[in-house]
Amino acid sequence: MLSERLDDFVTLAREIFGEEFIPLHRPVFGGNETRYLTGCIESNFVSSAGAKVGAFEQAVAEFVGAKHGIATVNGTAALHVALMVAGVTRGDEVLSQSLTFAATCNAISYIGARPVFIDVDRDTLGFSPTALRRWLETHARVENGHSYSRTTGARIAACVPMHTFGLPVHIAELSALCAEFHIPLIEDAAESLGSRVGDRQTGTFGAISAFSFNGNKIITTGGGGMLTTDDDEIARKARHLSTTAKLPHDYNFVHDMVGYNYRMPNLNAALGLAQMERLPAMLEIKAELARRWRAACPALGLTWIEAPTGTHPNNWLNAVLVRDRAARDAMLEYTNAQGVMTRPVWTPMHQLAHFADCQTDGLEVTEWLADRVVNIPSSVPENQFHRLIPTI
């Protein structure tokens, strides 16, 4: 029975995408990318001083609804800077989720802070407000406008929820809870550009947010990221830190602190500007694809992961649940052998050797999901490419 359903899955995937080999998610070009890249080359401004960087920052910030955008070389760099300007320092603790890509916890570790892993919700695959309240009421104390761990005495310097696969977490509840306990909220929105809670875009609930434009994201700059914020001072500090902390001057090189060479090059920003032109159409097509997969799930023996009521995911990577780990592994092995890419969720961070000694709340749901989640092909089908090509 399982093999028959997997055959049906492969058949449907080929029907949808019209290809023999079907990747999990690939970028689409063919709009103004070549034109904008050529303009950069002809101007000789190919590094971070080019005008396209500022234009891309403005385009993303306006789309999201944030006052400022600061472009970086990748999403991890954006997270690193966000944590620093939020005031996270060595020895602090940062509340996060174990069910995430490694970049979330790597950025915390760059500073010398330590992740504390709180469980996720089944409906969002993301940070659970219920689990967070339970942990804070047991382990945290508020003193002089900061939260501290009753267990270690360390300051709880930030909370970093991640919108997994573009599914919005219960971010309003998390924001209220963080405010109650005086913990800065930093959104890891790396995967959720275009996702909304009501009419509000993800990446606008925290004091600072970080996006990624890696090659497999909903729009790509090849490699790139962005920090967004409404706070003028946070934006100033983030821009300063990400440009090697160089003081503005026409010709002198003076740096007033240790900074980072994290600014996005003009070439990458040019690519991103062209990609942003097609984002609304991309979101429409991916919603249609998600609806088709969702409708097929019952017959395929799969459970569609439904976004919570009132939220609108960007459907970056579609995800389903299977019966158990054995069924997950059978599906992964069979589909990939047939040239249809599927993948499991990441190995949870607390199961990696370098994070194995971090505090956790038990992570029951995290481990349950890790055994059952499978990502399925989510690219724009070739027969829909024409809808993504703007008039030049």
Rank of each mutant, 00 (worst) to 15 (best):
N314F: 06
I183K: 09
T89D: 01
G203L: 01
T100H: 06
V365G: 09
R292E: 12
A71K: 07
D324M: 12
L369M: 13
L273S: 02
N314T: 12
T151G: 09
L167N: 08
T228R: 05
V320W: 13
H255C: 11
H25K: 12
F21A: 12
F165W: 02
A154K: 14
R141V: 14
R26E: 11
T72F: 04
S212Y: 07
C105R: 03
A78W: 00
D8H: 05
G203A: 02
D119G: 05
W368D: 10
I16L: 14
L247K: 11
P27Y: 09
E364W: 07
G362E: 12
N74A: 12
Y36C: 03
I22Q: 01
R323V: 08
A131G: 05
I41E: 07
L267A: 09
W293Y: 10
V88S: 04
I22H: 00
P298H: 08
L99R: 01
G65L: 06
G153Q: 12
G259T: 12
T130D: 13
D250S: 15
A66Y: 07
R236W: 13
A370S: 15
V345M: 11
N315Q: 12
L241M: 15
G206T: 04
H240S: 04
I376N: 06
A158W: 09
A51F: 08
S48V: 05
A71V: 06
F165Q: 00
N266Y: 04
H170G: 01
G50V: 01
Q351T: 03
L241P: 02
T100A: 08
A55L: 08
L352E: 00
V160S: 05
I186Y: 04
R5N: 11
N214H: 06
L352Y: 07
S47A: 12
T11C: 13
R5P: 01
L267D: 00
A158T: 02
I218H: 10
C105F: 09
F127E: 04
N144K: 10
R291Q: 13
R35Y: 09
I218Y: 02
F205C: 07
A281V: 04
I392K: 11
R278W: 02
S43R: 01
D324F: 14
A270K: 08
S147T: 15
V340H: 11
E93P: 07
S379A: 03
T124P: 08
A327E: 14
R26Y: 11
A154V: 09
L2A: 13
E277C: 01
T229S: 14
D8Q: 14
G54L: 03
M276N: 09
T11M: 11
Q338R: 14
S43K: 07
R294L: 03
L332K: 04
D199W: 03
D371G: 06
I234K: 15
N318M: 15
H240I: 00
